[in-house]
């Protein structure tokens, strides 16, 4: 633990002399910076996707779970009476916060995407819809169905469970995919840093030989590489993160029609979440380089 803290301190405090013992690597340093930046950019999008999918899943789950619909499928002359009967039952049903029959205009608006705005509802056997808003405790759909069956034969209760579940499942899966992407990006950063560290250690075999000859400990040698790669990953990822956030901010507004697309981004405190990306990248580089360096130094014994 003491060694770990000293190593961590060494990354941020640094030692000008120690930094110089490993020669600057120029082009490969820029590649590491670029790769860390690119990964951070992708990580920001994966984060935005995950958080948006999470919000969507929560919204769909909550909104649809607290509402139900009753369809009154009855001959035209009985529809009004059955609608009133159903509303009366709902007034006395536990778990129902409010219930109202949709107006003709509202039903017409619902059907407009399929039948156009000039649909004559009177000419079609369109069922009357009753919107039911549940209390926090929710209603007992089985009990309500029994009562409706007894008193309103044309009423069909739809508690949205049938089509809510796949929607919520899809959103949850999307969120999971986002998190898996972040895990994969993190693993890719670790693999990339490990490869780069191995290459740097191999390229500096003579440096390591000289350092050992003059009494450098493995920790000292490893630290020179750890600091270098950690800072590259940190700064590269910070730049990538900033570009990623900028790109999310500049996402085009898809308007009312594209509710999912407009929701793809960060809301509230979620804007702070991308700040974790460079820190995570730095931490991954710290451990990956440390592991690679110590393993390589052990092999060189």
């Amino acid at each position: 633990m003491k060694g770990f803290l000293a190593s961590l301190r060494g990354v941020f405090v640094g030692d000008r002399q120690a930094d110089r013992v490993v020669p600057p690597s120029g082009f490969t340093a820029q590649l590491t910076l670029f790769a860390a930046g690119a990964m951070a950019f992708l990580a920001v999008f994966a984060l935005a996707l995950s958080l948006a999918a999470g919000r969507l899943a929560d919204r769909w789950g909550e909104e649809l779970a607290r509402s139900a619909t009753i369809r009154i499928v009855a001959p035209l002359d009985q529809r009004a009476a059955q609608t009133d009967a159903a509303l009366r039952i709902l007034e006395t049903t536990r778990g129902v916060a409010s219930a109202r029959a949709l107006s003709d205009e509202e039903q017409q608006a619902l059907l407009a995407p399929w039948f156009g705005p000039d649909l004559a509802l009177d000419a079609l056997p369109v069922p009357r819809l009753i919107e039911v808003i549940e209390t926090q405790d929710g209603l007992d759909p089985a009990g309500l169905r029994l009562r409706l069956a007894a008193e309103v034969p044309g009423a069909v209760l739809d508690d949205h469970a049938r089509w809510r579940a796949p929607l919520v499942r899809a959103a949850a899966r999307l969120r999971l995919l986002g998190w898996i992407s972040i895990v994969l990006i993190t693993a890719a950063v670790a693999a990339m840093i490990t490869l780069a560290a191995h290459a740097a250690l191999a390229a500096n075999a003579q440096v390591i030989t000289v350092l050992r000859l003059v009494g450098a400990t493995d920790d000292y040698i490893a630290q020179a590489f750890i600091r270098r790669f950690t800072l590259r990953a940190l700064f590269g990822a910070a730049a990538g993160m900033m570009l990623g956030v900028l790109a999310v901010v500049l996402l085009p507004d898809a308007g009312e029609a594209g509710t999912f697309l407009t929701g793809l981004g960060f809301q509230g405190w979620h804007w702070l979440v991308p700040l974790v990306v460079p820190l995570l990248s730095g931490a991954v580089a710290f451990f990956a380089t440390g592991t690679a360096a110590r393993r390589r130094l052990k092999e060189l014994t």
Binding site: A18, V21, A216
Partner: peptide
């Protein structure tokens, strides 16, 4: 030696490490 460091830095390397 460490070819990227000056002779004086190479000589003082044991002190550095």
């Amino acid at each position: 030696f460490l070819d990227h460091l000056a002779v004086s830095d190479n000589i003082s390397l044991p002190l550095t490490v």
